[in-house]
Design a protein around this nucleic acid. Structure first.
Lengths: 193, 193
DNA sequence: TCAATGCTTGACTAATCATTCCAAGATAGT
DNA sequence: ACTATCTTGGAATGATTAGTCAAGCATTGA
């Protein structure tokens, strides 16, 4: 089999991403990726460059999807408070429903590599900032709708909810039970009640 | 120089711990540890076993110190709410004051290794549980002192504060500014006001 | 049918990894 | 001063790593 590509690059990227997600950057060897994606060495290096570039591509793919999903919630009609609730419930479902307890690829990447890998750092930083801005926009709306006290600072609350989002992602990787994630979220949501 | 130990094992462990803390398990090679601690190959293997055992020893040392510190706060007299505040302020100070932005060794270990390393997993799990229990005890006291509503569940709140503790540790490793950590903590503390 | 394109395959390289081992040397007790 | 004991540091080992490369072959277009 040769002549034209015998694999779908996007599919291979997805599988590589899953592997990085589960095992981390150092934990997933090129050999593992080859086995998992089913493609040969030459194909991988010709398509994605090297391991590091492949990892960055996986991060981009993941980050893009995650932010898109968050924005989909943001654009939903309805009370900002309800949107916030739904966003967190959805997140808890996804995290607790993952039998591999992978947590979040971006958070994992950040803890493992960001301090010493500028490329990874830039991507994680951008993702965090984008998430914070989404929360910020939502909280401004909430304040306008009277669901957040006038004297409260939307920026401060946005940072807090970003922290909440991060914390459940980390706890999920520690195989925390669903009820733990729910307790964290339910308590966090009290601050806008 | 030989005959009797030319190094203090506890000091070497401290330096190895610092290196693991900053670079992670895979990121710190035995060569690096040798350079950093200043001791020879033979000495390291004779004293600590192998790299993995050394890492576990570093985790134990770190975890022991961290929990001791938390318990010191717990045993302080004064209103539970004030104790909670002090505990978080101290934590923010330590995290934001670290120029290397290392975050928390236990959290880092957990994200990098816990899913595939049973020994690491057990230690992290134990540390999380211990921290949760400390929060729980504090919140029970708070409830008795009328600082936490009767209908509130101390277990739920303990989990929430554990999540808060984790989140600022992760954000600190992302080189978040001090004000971000303060916003997270200040907002979290609102739930007991 | 045939040639050209370019993807696939697997062997190969070179570097790095953790770990073992031993010869050399320094100390402590007698 | 001498010997036994233990530490030391570097050489050697073998496994594993990421990355390269050339030979082969299926597909495509004529």
């Amino acid at each position: 089999m040769a002549g034209k590509k015998a694999f779908v690059p996007d599919q291979a990227l997805q599988q590589a991403m899953d592997l990085f997600w589960e095992r981390g950057y150092e934990g997933a060897s090129v050999e593992d990726i080859l086995t998992s994606t089913g493609l040969g060495r030459g194909s991988l290096y010709a398509t994605f460059g090297d391991k590091h570039a492949l990892y960055l591509a996986a991060l981009d793919r993941y980050g893009g999807g995650a932010l898109e999903q968050m924005r989909a919630f943001l654009d939903q009609p309805g009370s900002p408070r309800a949107v916030l609730e739904e966003l967190f419930r959805y997140s808890v479902d996804a995290l607790a429903g993952d039998p591999a307890h992978r947590g979040c690829l971006l958070v994992n990447a950040h803890v493992e590599l960001a301090p010493h890998d500028p490329d990874v750092f830039a991507r994680v930083q951008a993702a965090y900032r984008a998430a914070e801005e989404i929360f910020f926009a939502l909280l401004v709306r909430a304040q306008a709708a009277g669901e957040l006290a006038e004297e409260s600072d939307p920026r401060q609350f946005a940072r807090f909810f970003l922290g909440t989002l991060v914390s459940i992602r980390v706890l999920a990787r520690a195989k925390a039970e669903r009820v733990v994630l729910e307790d964290v979220v339910n308590t966090a949501l009290l601050v806008v009640r």
